[in-house]
Design a protein around this nucleic acid. Structure first.
Length: 533
RNA sequence: GGGCCGCUAGCUCAAUGGUAGAGCAGCUGACUCUUAAUCAGCGGGUUGGAGGUUCGAGUCCUCCGCGGCUCACCA
């Protein structure tokens, strides 16, 4: 196989053969190193030229060649490793003829190992005085342009490995993502939550409302859904006596794609017995503050592009009921502001939606679609999304979600039209969703049946009878929450597309010549021969 | 799915409807403290694809592909 640019690819192959002719292995098996480039730069940052000359520190470092500055019989280069760039100095009369020939056959992108001692150049840059040089792996394809790197967004996603080599920003986002995930685990581990793994393939759709991906198990001849949420399994574990559990893993939803929606996304869900949604809001505040402090070094973090940059203040979280939010953000031009009591009254949300729609139609805003077909609770949810959601920039909990749109949440004892449920909004995005879990099996079965009867592609086709059975064994009063990890990473890395924080985002297949020549190749039937690992 | 924008050398970008260019990368040569190394020379293109208009299309039109933004749906 060959890749563009073919001339440079061929040229590099030829150099590889020349290197072998010099007696070097093309792809040697091991390089015995003492430091990464980064560790070395950190460790000797304060060593003076005099000290280095006196101590003669021997090091062996490996890395990718990212800059070459040959000068006839000597040369400077930079190698990158572990996220840092280290200068090396190669001299003919030090390394010898064969190694210097090898050096002259190196290209940008090659991976090499060098041995030597440290010194400082006359511009005081810490540098390896190379005594021994070896090729560890040849790059047959050239690096992108050295000043601008790889800028094309599509190529950055399709060839993330190149993006990571040349764009420090990409590298920074993903190292930070890993740090965030580690801190999330620490937070829950320290509080004695047990990390568990529940099925990714579900026989019955549940735990959220979303269109699923469907797959098939051949031996059992059974259709399965890639999970849209782990919720119902995690609560079964609380029934089983694991009072505090969490799971951080992928959910899959077969819906549209945009800046804040990926088809597979990472969700952190946790459940705790003998708690309610108020406890969760307090815990969530602690969690977000801790993360901002540890990952960004401050509870105030910048978010947005230059022209619309804002500081997100994680030191205090607003709390509003959904009805209060509609009241607060009602557009003044749309007439008298609806009172919370009106929104709570039977038929009230419909009256208000009519008024809102009249204004929206005449002002180019999107009206609520066919409110007459919706319940009061559904209309309230629609009003909230239309009127308030985009205003929720600073961290804000919205609570008292309508029962009609919260089939798994416990109702408020003093107002059964709403539930003990909240969502956390930051920068106009939904970051978290938590509630006091409905643990009355009779009520849960009634709500499941209503979902099935209502139908639609997002609704389960059947009631999850086993889940009702589990509840019938007794689920303690429990609170549970899901946090969108990708969106959290967006916030903490000031990224504005979810694809920036996912290593390999889903893109349409790229129709290349190679793909065309192999089209139809992968067979879908089981084969006994070959290809097994 | 709709609307708008984009797609030119490996990469980053130029080019009134009138000879497709630059920088980096590449190749040849010079150069033993450079760091966007420098200096001299050279090669590199089906302008995303297919049609059309025109004496002439990278540029205008139609369709298609991929991407970005946005709206809708959804979390």
């Amino acid at each position: 196989m060959e890749f563009e640019p073919v001339d440079q690819y061929q040229q590099r192959l030829k150099k590889l053969r020349d290197i072998e002719a010099l007696g070097y292995a093309a792809y040697p098996h091991k390089f015995d190193w003492t430091h990464t480039a980064k560790k070395l730069l950190d460790a000797f940052r304060d060593e003076t030229a005099e000290r280095l000359a006196a101590d003669r520190v021997e090091v062996r470092v490996a890395g990718r060649v990212v800059a070459l500055r040959p000068h006839g019989k000597a040369a400077f280069a930079h190698i990158s490793g572990d996220g840092a760039r280290l200068q090396i100095y190669v001299k003919l009369d030090v390394v010898g003829e064969a190694a210097f020939k090898l050096f002259q056959l190196l290209d940008l992108g090659d991976i090499i190992g060098v041995s030597g001692h440290l010194f400082r150049t006359k511009t005081n840059e810490l540098t390896v005085w190379v005594e021994k040089l070896e090729l560890l792996s040849k790059a047959l394809l050239p690096m992108p342009e050295k000043w601008h790197g790889l800028a094309d967004v599509e190529q950055r996603y399709r060839r993330r490995y190149v993006d990571l080599i040349v764009n420090d920003r990409a590298r920074e986002i993903f190292t930070r993502r890993t740090q965030i995930i580690r801190e999330l685990r620490n937070f829950f581990d320290e509080r004695h939550y047990m990390e568990v793994e529940t099925p990714m393939m579900h026989p019955i759709l549940g735990g959220a409302t979303a269109r699923p991906f469907i797959t098939h198990h051949n031996t059992f001849d059974m259709d399965l859904y890639l999970r849209i949420a782990p919720e119902l399994y995690l609560k079964r574990l609380v029934v089983g006596g694991f009072d505090r559990v969490y799971e951080m893993n992928r959910n899959f939803r077969n819906e549209g794609v945009d800046a804040i929606h990926e088809r597979e996304f990472t969700m952190l869900e946790f459940y705790q017995a003998y708690s309610d949604f108020e406890d969760l809001m307090d815990l969530t505040e602690d969690l977000f503050r801790m993360l901002a402090q540890k990952v960004c070094g401050s509870t105030t973090i910048p978010y947005g592009q230059e022209d619309s940059k804002i500081d997100l203040d994680f030191s205090r979280f607003a709390r509003l009921s959904m009805r209060e939010a509609i009241n607060k953000y009602w557009p003044a031009a749309a007439g008298a502001t609806p009172e919370v009591a009106q929104l709570a009254a039977s038929g009230g949300p419909h009256t208000i939606a009519e008024r809102y729609n009249a204004w929206a139609r005449s002002h180019g805003a999107k009206p609520i679609v066919e409110p007459a077909k919706l319940s009061d609770g559904e209309v309230t949810g629609e009003l909230f999304e239309s009127i308030a959601e985009s205003h929720l920039i600073q961290p804000t909990f919205i609570y008292d979600f309508p029962t009609a749109i919260s089939p798994l949440s416990k109702k408020r004892p003093n107002d059964p039209s709403v539930t003990e449920r909240f969502e956390l909004f930051i920068a106009g995005m939904e970051l978290a969703n938590g509630f006091s879990e409905l643990n009355d099996p009779v009520d849960q079965e009634r709500r499941f049946r209503a979902q099935v009867e209502k139908g639609g592609q997002e609704a389960p086709k059947e009631v999850d009878v086993d889940y009702i059975r589990a509840l019938s064994h007794g689920l303690p009063p429990t609170a549970g929450e899901g946090i969108g990890v990708d969106r959290l990473v967006m916030l903490l890395t000031n990224s504005h597309s979810i694809r920036e924080v996912v290593l390999f985002p889903l893109l349409r297949a790229e129709m290349t010549e190679v793909a065309e020549s192999q089209s139809g190749a992968p067979s879908t039937h089981d084969t006994k021969s070959g290809g097994t690992k």
